[in-house]
Design a protein around this nucleic acid. Structure first.
Lengths: 333, 333
DNA sequence: CTGTTAGCGCCTTCAC
DNA sequence: GTGAAGGCGCTAACAG
């Protein structure tokens, strides 16, 4: 191999631009900075022109070394399915890229020693971190990343951290009301991983609201959010005294439940009413079309964008700190 | 705000470790390098001890600046759904992290000027790039990234690039054979985005194999891989002369097709045989359970890992350069 | 094998 | 408003 890497043409540096523009490197740095820095209008223009002619591009590593930060956003999930569906993930990436930043996905699902691993990684220096994983708490993430710009999306925030919470109760109240209107007297609740704060809130909301509204929650079953667990739990539902309404804390479990009961010729809404959670598009498949509860993903993306754009000013916009869930009516309930 | 950032305790540097171990900084660098570099056994131990005591962690930005590379892997997709499903994405992330690297997801779907955007980004310096997007060609990606370590997974490779291709024909042949065995004489083909090289190969394989095997492809319909497009295209299927077999180039389209025909009381395998593609887990939902064609995702991950571990040596392992698809029998065909 | 010396490219004082 | 100088932390190159 004579010249495997033909000495990739060296990229122009700030010094090259400075030379061409006939100014000092520091001027170039200032002129090219997004922030308003003292440079005379005339020199700024010379610098911009020279930079364009040379095809200059900043070296983010050098800037990162000097400023101790990187234009990347860490997205912390358990498994990737935490982002409950692609409906959220795709626009999230788009929003991050629209801000000129890049998303580093960090999966803490079963990586032990995630900390050691991260400390030697460039991800350590990210501009901000978005935390979806319920395994991470605010303080831990702050020490994990070389940044205080942590947005907690898992409910585990503290006084110092930014967050977006979901008002689970709003949509649940609508769904329960709906079930009652349709004559439901009894209900079953199918839950997911109870270590999640969000899940705990969801379960509690169901209990409280059902109790308050007079819908008798006769059965609680625990799954793991998955289709498979819903399918398996269907066996635990007593056909003889079928609950009038079955509430699942994920759409996937609702789908499994529906398939499991369908095998016994029990169909919603004829034989029981079925409610999912998350309002994923999948549930819209004709074969399921499950009534669900969810929030507007665009609103969540909007809040995240605001945070990334100006982490310091985020506190001043409480209107994006909490999202409301709503009942999404489909054919099962 | 008196002290918003309480001067985050400075992390120890290589110089601190050197001082404590009583050696030169360069020795520390060598001792801590993953590669085998000349350091006396005794000094190496002193360095390791000092580093541990100090809680030293490398600064990847500084290393990146010096070596011009970063321990990150760019994953380039159109939209995130390019990774056809989470079955692949989650283990891919896990594999990347297992190598001590981080995944930067780059979505080129509708970002114009992706190039300008990237050149100013740290992603430019990634260790390697994995290309799933069919919008990117090998040469383009090499110039886009400051790295020749590009693995093409979209079929658009050239002589200089590493790649993994999928033998689409193998599984298609099995599926067509199966349909014939079950008495099919006529078939319909439902396709996706035809700009993709992989899709083109898939379509051609279907045509060739059906022609060769004597299955008459009476109809071709174009969708976009999605459930919705399959559902819409079901209307174009003539109920009177229903094809014996319907082959879809994605599972999602097959699901849509199935729902669309179900609405007209046409069910597989009673009334027609239905075949999907990708063999995603979703298709396993009881309500669908669609026969499909796919490759072993673990094999793909294995090949990708080999590449990331040693991009230079990858060429010497041709056994991972091509994956075979296989027919996955389920209930619809 | 070892240590010294230069950078890598940028930003940030700090005088002017 | 400007520019020189030093530093971010590490690695490569070069003598010893």
């Amino acid at each position: 191999m004579p010249e495997d890497k033909p000495a990739r043409r060296k990229r122009p540096t700030i010094a090259d631009v400075a030379k061409r523009a006939g100014v000092a490197p520091a001027i170039v740095s200032r002129a090219l900075s997004p922030e308003r820095r003292p440079v005379s209008r005339e020199k700024r223009e010379r610098v911009l022109k020279a930079a364009a002619e040379l095809g200059y591009n900043q070296n983010p590593l050098a800037r990162g070394l000097a400023t101790n930060s990187l234009d990347m956003v860490a997205v912390i999930v358990n498994h990737i399915t935490d982002l409950s569906d692609l409906d959220l993930f795709d626009p999230l990436l788009e929003a991050i890229q629209a801000l000129g930043k890049q998303a580093v996905i960090i999966r803490v699902g079963n990586t032990e020693k995630i900390e050691d691993f991260l400390r030697n990684s460039a991800a350590f220096h990210v501009h901000a971190a978005l935390v979806f994983s319920d395994f991470a708490d605010a303080e831990g993430v702050r020490t994990l990343f070389h940044s205080d710009n942590v947005l907690m999306l898992n409910g585990r925030f503290d006084a110092k951290s930014a967050y977006i919470t979901i008002d689970e109760a709003a949509g649940i109240r609508e769904a329960v009301t709906r079930a009652l209107e349709r004559g439901a007297k009894t209900g079953a609740l199918v839950t997911g991983r109870q270590t999640s704060l969000i899940e705990q809130a969801r379960i509690q909301a169901y209990r409280d609201i059902c109790a308050g509204a007079g819908l008798d929650l006769v059965q609680e079953l625990q799954g793991d959010y998955s289709y498979a667990s819903g399918l398996a739990l269907a066996r635990s539902i007593d056909g003889a005294s079928l609950p009038d309404a079955i509430f699942c804390t994920s759409d996937a479990m609702a789908m499994g439940m529906m398939d499991g009961l369908r095998a016994r010729d029990l169909l919603p809404p004829r034989d029981y009413r079925l409610y999912g959670f998350d309002a994923v598009v999948n549930a819209n498949f004709n074969a399921f079309d499950i009534s669900s509860i969810g929030f507007d993903r665009a609103e969540l993306i909007h809040g995240i964008s605001m945070f990334l754009k100006d982490p310091a000013g985020y506190r001043d916009h409480p209107e994006v700190h909490e999202l409301r869930t709503r009942f999404v009516e489909r054919s099962t309930g």
